[in-house]
Design a protein around this nucleic acid. Sequence first.
RNA 1: GCCGGCGUGGCGGAAUUGGUAGACGCGCGCGAUUCAAAAUCGCGUUUCUUCGGAAGUAUGGGUUCGAUUCCCAUCGCCGGUACCA
Length: 960
Amino acid sequence: MSEKRKPYPFDLFEPKWQSHWAENKTYRTPGPGDEGFDATKPKYYILDMFPYPSGAGLHVGHPEGYTATDIVGRYKRMNGFNVLHPMGWDAFGLPAEQYAIKTGTHPRITTEANTNNFRRQLQELGFGYDWDREINTTDPKYVRWTQWIFLQLYNSYFCDEDQKAKPVSELEAKGWTQQQIDEVRLAFIHEAPVNWSPSMGTVLANEEVQEWKDKGETVVRRPLRQWMLRITKYAQRLIDELEPLDWPESIKALQRNWIGRSEGAEVIFDVEGHDITVFTTRPDTLFGATYMVLAPEHPLVPEITTTDQKEVVETYVAACASKSDMERGLDKEKTGVATGASAINPVNGEKIPVWIADYVMMGYGSGAIMAVPAHDSRDFEFAIEFGLPIKAVVFPDHKWLKENGGHLEVEVIEDGTNRELTWTFPELVVQAEREESFQKQASAFYQDQVSNFATAYPDHGTAINSGFLEGLKTKDAKKKIIHWLGENGKGEKKIQFKLRDWLFSRQRYWGEPFPLLWDKETGQHSGVPESELPLLQPEMEDFKPTGDPRGPLINCTDWINYSDKLQRETNTMPQWAGSCWYYLRYCDPNNTEHFISPDTESYWGNDEGFVDFYVGGKEHAVLHLLYSRFWHKVLNDLGHLKSKEPFKKYFAPGLIMGEMEFAIFETQSGEIVSYKDLEEQDSRTFVMKRTGEALIKKVVGPEEVEKKGENFVLISDPSIRVRSKAEKMSKSLGNVVNPDDVVERYGADSLRLYEMFMGPLDQDKPWAMKGVEGVHRFLAKVWRLAFSEDADGGWISSGKIVAGENADLAKTTHQTIKRVEEAINSLRFNTGISAMMECSNAYTSAGEIPRDLFLTFLKLLSPFAPHLAEEINAALGGTELVSEQTWPELDESLLVESEIQLIVQVNGKLRARIMVPADISKEDAEAQALADENVTTHTDGKTVRKVIVVPGKLVNIVAN
RNA sequence: GCCGGCGUGGCGGAAUUGGUAGACGCGCGCGAUUCAAAAUCGCGUUUCUUCGGAAGUAUGGGUUCGAUUCCCAUCGCCGGUACCA
């Protein structure tokens, strides 16, 4: 193959510099206690989410965030910071084990091969990582501390009074029994319905179910004894302490949403002699509770069910048990059966029927609700379905009534058929506007006539039909009823969270074994001595799921039998365990005494949040980022860490989508039409919007574009899309871009620069190979400023870099310093690259470039395209690496203009641009503007009413 | 449904205390160079236009001398989440 000549020899110098940096440990960052550590420098800890080293290798999505942090890291380094910028491997995980099951290759072997490939790929992109700090979650030296941290959790409980974790030894000292202590540990055994995957032979966290189902695995509900972590105790703190962090608001919202805090009340109902507690966010609607619903799994269901209903209830419960939460969610049709029991509404003594229905979940609140069909859409639907009474107790607010024109649509059910009625009550609306105390009339009006709304009215309003709450606004009614409940021992204020405890055990081989022992006689569990850590998996050849919910390790009899009396726990930890704390270990990766030493912790961490800047995908917004925060807080509570939060600042890069494809069409009649002129009928047929002429669609790849279709010709005009929507990159769509290919064709600098130039970092954006060529051309232009081609095709000095000065170029260069700095500081790298492009265009036009300015420019370029910057710098006689030089200082005086352009508007429309001295007075500016020819043509015959002068910017003349 | 985000040329996107809309790049057109092509360089490129201008940042209003930017409403797209009581 005749290799096309490269526009600049990146293929030669990029590997050269990579080796140079590696051999000289250019990016090594000494920490406290290390040789060469300079404690006087400020520090900056910038972190990428470490990858799972999959067999597929690096995806173009990886270098997006990694380049961003690399640029910021290099910039900080050049500004005198000790920059900690490490990389490592989140190397436990299911794919390696699934692969082992299939092929018999030990996961350790697969993992090592994959890690080596990832490391090579990252090094070929020129990232300035300190590879001496590389960590791997599967490394026994790392596993040791993951297990150690687990033991901290195991040996702690959450003190509600102080809202923090404390050692269980404090409880022992108080004389608590082992059993009592086990009930409060942060790591505890719990038997509950879990997501069991028969195809993988393991349980999954709620958060993981969808991901694996999408990958084709099966997941069912099944009760099992599992290790859980008591993250729910931290729910409030996880919300509160999120607030001051410098995270994108959207990510904070995602976490808050996930934790799902609701304020309300618990109300106790008497059901056939049993107290049943319900949680409600609307205790003010208690008078409107017309029935009660229990989750089918509610423990009291068998006890309260009447003999008449026993059979239907049992059938229904059994049917629900076979369905997963997911299936229940998908089934929107309301189902349920009556238990035959009734509950007594504590507020008015009314007897209401008790039903069971799968729209009530056992996992949230108490698994029981009071149903207020008039004001809750789900209860409403259920009541309609089963003909239960609906009683309105909240009168809609004024706004709602007004917006509905004084009409309130209601629906009455008679003989099982629905009939729509509309009642008007203009007099009520008028009254509502005039008087505060219209509620009485409303109440009187509704008492007899309104039994059913057309829909539930779930918003706030005024209490009606509500005894002592009558006439109160919802907010006040809530307060009053909560007070009443408390006084009467019928309930209290309650804050409820959606967050569930974290299911922490997995039935896998390739994970950290739990460092726990079980007493074979008593069944009591205990931790292994710390001195025995790390506790590694035994060597095994067969990892197949056995169907035994205790996991594959159960087959290793030698390993599980710790002693005559004690047996090992056979579960392993989920992949999250290692990633929960890895950011700490980078600070002190080889410490054998501590997971992180207090010295390194103090130096590299911040009190407000340990890591200065964390960058990684928002798909981890509610999993990894929440789990890490939880572990960090526990370690902080127990005195092992000073900071309360792991990540002070966090940023999530957008997704890189697949490339879009383009074509325009020529119809049989010879007309050229674009995709926009076409309407898609189905996946194969287009219709011309204008004429209705049908075309058969053919999705084309770039090479096919010029081939003829059946009914039309495709012409290569990339301006019109065929694959008009950006889609996620995926194997099945065949739109995956391999970074290795891009590096091969355009070089690492081009890939880095392109990913930063694509658009705002946090936005999803489609890949475009033409765009890579664009930045590649820019880099080639920079190269040709310094080098020319000789007759033999070799590169020689261009002679354009000269001694001397050039005021215009100095100004341009310093403007570029400013713009690049601003771009890096605000993470808007695309604008910084634009600035450098403009600067290099100015250099090209000038022909000759003063050496000092060009060297300055190289410094600006170096965080983005470090190889090219080093190569040119060295060629120009630079003895010091650009990476190790200091960032250029901005000379503001060069930016000052003596003459500026003023914009002159007449009635807000641009009419003239005039050059004036920069320090022109307002009066002079006004006079000059009014005198301008282009202005007078628009002001002639009009009276100038007003003139606005914005110094240095514009003059706006208002005339009519 | 609820929560969050986003709507600017043929395309990716600039314009962050309200002040020149379309920087930079892609694509496209024309020209230079070349036997020719590639590469490179130069010029042009929002739309309409009676060549004077006019319109224009999803749509409709509002505030302002002036709005892509602020406010209200509507429409559309994307992400998260969902019988969470």
